[in-house]
Design a protein around this nucleic acid. Structure first.
Lengths: 129, 129
DNA sequence: TTTAAAAATAGGATTAATTCCTACTTTCAA
DNA sequence: TTGAAAGTAGGAATTAATCCTATTTTTAAA
């Protein structure tokens, strides 16, 4: 049974315990607290590896660093980002995802990935202000 | 009647004639062909201004520069990006957008922006390969 | 029209995020 | 046990985008 490297396992552990959508730097910082010798390039490299494996999701944000999301056993979900404050929120697919998927595939020939829906919006507190 | 600056107007003209989703560098390059004295910082600054005004849309992409989209009279539409090749496609909201909007607002308190839907997927040609 | 303030610009320096490079270490598999 | 493959630390390099400064253009009022 092939194990992850010590460093990769630490990165996974860190992410598993986070319930927001950390940046690579946050993950680097927290991993370094457990193992001060870990390097920044190891964190970035492993985040890319875990994205490839489908174990985590990478969320691109305009005017800011990418965010990462550990998928765990949780249901597949989408992300909505406040255009103003940049905060990322999860949402479940309580709407008809199949209809959407079909519509998009018919139009474009591109098959939607179920963990790849990102929407911009305005959150309540920014709307007030 | 307040006009745009010469440079801003040139940037708008360049975008109006493009039917894909250019990067800032592409826009800079094409604008420079019309007016060789235009500077990169002017292009970036104006793109931000036009995003603020809602005249263009900014699309964040992991592992690559942002893309821009001129909205014109066209219908509001979403974007789907192939995770593999990075190509951006448009799609219309042929599905029930209201249902989706309501579901997301109920869950998160964030109000979806109709030009802010970005989805990752795998395009046909990348699927084959 | 002058004229002063405000907005915009060119060009280059700077920053932020991420990747790349190299020498070294660990793991794997025969 | 040994050679290949994969992974690592640390720092250099790259990329995308913003910031800074001196100058120019525009606006709007006197």
């Amino acid at each position: 049974m092939k194990n992850y490297s010590k460093q990769r396992q630490e990165i996974i552990d860190v992410m598993r315990e986070m319930y927001h959508h950390p940046t690579a730097e946050e993950i680097y910082f927290l991993t370094k607290q457990r193992d001060s010798s870990v390097s920044r390039s190891t964190v970035y490299r492993n985040l890319n590896v875990l994205v490839q494996k489908g174990m985590i999701t990478q969320i691109a944000v305009s005017n800011g660093p990418d965010r990462y999301d550990y998928i765990q056993n949780r249901q597949k979900h989408g992300h909505i980002i406040c255009k103003n404050c940049g905060k990322v929120y999860d949402f479940l697919y309580n709407f008809n995802l199949e209809e959407m998927k079909e519509s998009i595939t018919n139009q474009t020939g591109v098959e939607l990935l179920e963990d790849g829906i990102v929407i911009k919006g305005i959150c309540n507190s920014c709307k007030k202000a």
